[in-house]
Amino acid sequence: MSLPKLFIAAALVLCAHANAQTTSSTAGALVVVPAFGEVTHANDQATAAFAVEEQDKDKTAAASRVNQKMKQGTEIIRREDPQASLKTQGYYTYPIYPEQRPLDGAAVSRPVPVGWRVGQYLEVKTTNLANLAKTTAAAQNVMSLNNLRFGLSPATLKQLDERRIAATYLNLNERIASIAAAMGRKPGDAVIDTIDFEGSGRYAEQAVSVTGARMMAAKTAPEVAEPTFEPGETTLQMRLVGKLKFR
Rank of each mutant, 00 (worst) to 15 (best):
P4G: 11
A18Q: 11
Q21V: 14
S24A: 13
A27T: 14
V33G: 01
P34K: 04
V39K: 07
T40Q: 14
H41K: 15
N43M: 00
F50T: 01
V52C: 13
V52T: 10
E53T: 15
E53H: 10
S64V: 10
M70L: 13
G73H: 09
E80W: 00
D81Q: 08
S85V: 15
S85P: 01
Y92A: 11
Y94R: 10
I96K: 09
L103N: 14
A107Q: 13
A107Y: 10
V118H: 02
G119S: 03
Y121A: 04
Y121G: 02
K125W: 03
L132R: 07
L132C: 03
A133V: 02
Q140N: 10
N146Q: 12
N147F: 03
F150Q: 01
L152P: 00
S153V: 06
K158M: 10
Q159A: 09
Q159H: 04
R164N: 09
A166L: 09
T168I: 03
E174Q: 12
R175A: 09
A180D: 02
A181E: 12
A190T: 07
I192D: 07
T194A: 12
E198I: 05
G201N: 10
S209Q: 09
T211Q: 13
G212E: 08
A217T: 12
F229N: 03
F229Q: 01
L240G: 13
